[in-house]
Amino acid sequence: MIEKPYGTAAAVQHASPRDWPPDSRLNPGPERAFRAICALALVLPLLLLATLLGRALQEGWPRLSMEFITAYPSRVPANAGILPALVGSAFLMGLTAVMAIPLGVGAAIYLEEYAGSSRLTGLIEVSISNLAGVPSIIYGLLGLELFVRAMAFGRSLLAGAATLALLLLPMVILAAREALRTVPHSMREACFALGADRWQTVRRVVLPMSLPGILTGIILALARAIGETAPLITIGALTYVPFLPDSVHSPFTALPIQIFNWISRPQAGFRVNAAAGIIVLLAIMLLMNGAAIWLRVRFERKLSS
């Protein structure tokens, strides 16, 4: 029998020295203190966030009511509501999804299923990773020149949604690619062996299998987009909209913009409104994230069974 040079039972048990307990015999004080400081660095921001959220809840909760949801903005803080902002955000998210999903999923399919390692593919990859690092307000400047002025959409829902769609594309592409990669290669090979071509394989096998993963990624991306403020301000979303949008060419406001508008006013009443608006915004995001997690868990269970 060949004797192994290292690899005793103990070493196998503790696969990584990362998992070893700190050796308290060596230098007990500093070891333990450092560990505590590290843990504190992790917990402190979370505690701070919890405190801040608590403050927002405390300030905004009494203001939350059915009237707050269904009222139009007003110069009197106590009468003001978020209806146009809520409807605007809903329209905006719907339009953004309609634009970003086909483009993003299409690009992901191209990169995962079609593209070889050509120079063009390399250029696409570099662009996507670059775009992910561009500040969102720069997208606003692009939207202002391209959609509002050059394409003459005006300061409309359509221009806002198109800008947000471009902003979301890198995120959607990344999520969709990850989902596509979870489909085992043997599935594609089986499909090709049955005489299907690439597009049929994608449409009938790869896409249906990765759909829950793609949906999860899209919901998470949209949950992030619903809080985006800067690019919408740059393309000229209004801050005072006493009417509901009636078409995609209509001027609009959105929930985060309404919140921003209330924060920037000096009266205390508006600050309470902002806190209430924040509660609504965070609740919507929480719901969307919950839906995404539910989908992911269901998907994982289906894969493992």
């Binding site: 992030r224 809080g227 985060p256 600050r271 915004l281 965070l282 995001m285």
Partner: peptide, 13 residues
């Protein structure tokens, strides 16, 4: 993931 406008409110208020 918290929207930045919310962080802005925290910073100011």
């Amino acid at each position: 993931g918290i929207p930045t406008v919310v962080y802005g409110y925290f910073a100011l208020a």
